[in-house]
Design a protein around this nucleic acid. Structure first.
Lengths: 205, 205
DNA sequence: TATATTTCCTAACAGCGTTAGCAAAGGTAC
DNA sequence: GTACCTTTGCTAACGCTGTTAGGAAATATA
């Protein structure tokens, strides 16, 4: 009685081909343009068949979300295991994370919700430069004070902005649960002040 | 002949009411559910009238994008001017940035494209914890080595992840132009290594 | 062979961004 | 005041989206 087995196998094949086609479409035209109808077209089934395997479009996306974090987790773990000291491990982890994001842009964009407007829209905002300039003047001043004027100011500006954005956006998406008897707000305060003192130290302060 | 003036004034009134209604709708139901038809309904005009004032939906969004960066720029500049030393200025800037993001969540989400899935989806991914654990073990080990075991490990883990994500995501959205004779890639390498050494220092290394 | 079940499609609903084309209102000139 | 022109704002449509109801055809069971 291999009939139910065959049916399950065929069912899985359709499910896999949905994910495969979806992934192909995403890599061709990005997340925004992915649609159930396009998937149905690609797998050569009608639209409702897709709904036999996934509750809705978001379920397909969150499947890729899971895949992405699984893959990132593996890469990061692999990088750790390839090193022996904790310091080199952390360094390798950071590089692995970085490389993952740029080798799998589509995954990363989905995982962190990047991409509401087109990705390059940020650089087209004229108000951005005025806002970045405030960072620039302050950091340039600090580097002069610290006697490290020759350092690349723009690198530090970019780091400052980026790290700050990272702290903020992760907090908006996944606020820390609060550990060791500290509330989430106390944690945030700590994280922010810790970041600032660390950054100032990096400027020679 | 105040007729053209009146017409311009009325035109501006409609334009303003479009933005006002859009902003209201966004604050009620988020960016994802904003639609031209809802705006038209709110301003009590038909749909094509909206297109007399904005080329398309994206033009409305980028108007808010500009507003957001303008407001953020003002807050940050204000924080700077309220302080005298560069170090306290930088600190005040960071706090102003932070506060802006949480006081104006809608702006911040639009400005940085957060919000493709619902914002809270991140914490629902089971693969996330496995991936964070790699950070945790490594950083805990480093703190032990540095003799700073009592420090809040989770805070450092959260910082590490957040900053790394910030560096990556800003790079994906607005890659640095390359300054001072360095290519964008060299800049990135510098920024990343600088981050790692800085972070390690913060762990007592 | 007849019945029950699974599989799969057509067709629709309600919404979206966007635009063509027309009616009405407003302003201008005689 | 009447004729003309320009602006204004509408209806209605096109083509797309996610999602689902209901029925036909194929398959499995008795």
């Amino acid at each position: 009685m291999g009939i139910v087995e065959r049916k399950e196998r065929q069912r899985k094949e359709v499910r896999d081909s949905i994910l495969e086609s979806a992934w192909k479409l995403v890599n061709e035209d990005g997340w925004q343009s992915l649609s159930i109808r396009k998937i149905a077209d690609a797998i050569e089934y009608s639209v409702p068949v897709v709904y036999d395997h996934f509750e809705n479009k978001e379920a397909i996306l969150s499947e890729f979300n899971r895949q992405g974090f699984k893959l990132l987790g593996d890469k990061v773990k692999e990088a750790k295991l390839a090193n022996t000291t904790a310091a080199t491990q952390l360094e390798a982890i950071a590089f692995a994370y970085w490389d993952f994001a740029f080798e799998h842009k589509e995954y990363y964009q989905l995982m962190y919700g990047l991409g509401m407007p087109s990705c390059e829209s940020l650089t087209k905002v004229p108000e951005l430069t005025a806002f970045i300039d405030v960072f620039h003047t302050t950091i340039a001043e600090l580097l002069k004070e610290g006697g490290a004027e020759q350092e690349n100011v723009w690198m530090k500006v970019h780091s400052f902005w980026s790290m700050l954005h990272g702290l903020v956006s992760i907090n908006l998406m996944a606020p820390p649960a609060g550990h060791m008897g500290l509330s989430a707000e106390e944690m945030n305060r700590l994280i922010l002040t810790d970041f600032i003192t660390g950054f100032l130290k990096g400027l020679g302060k």
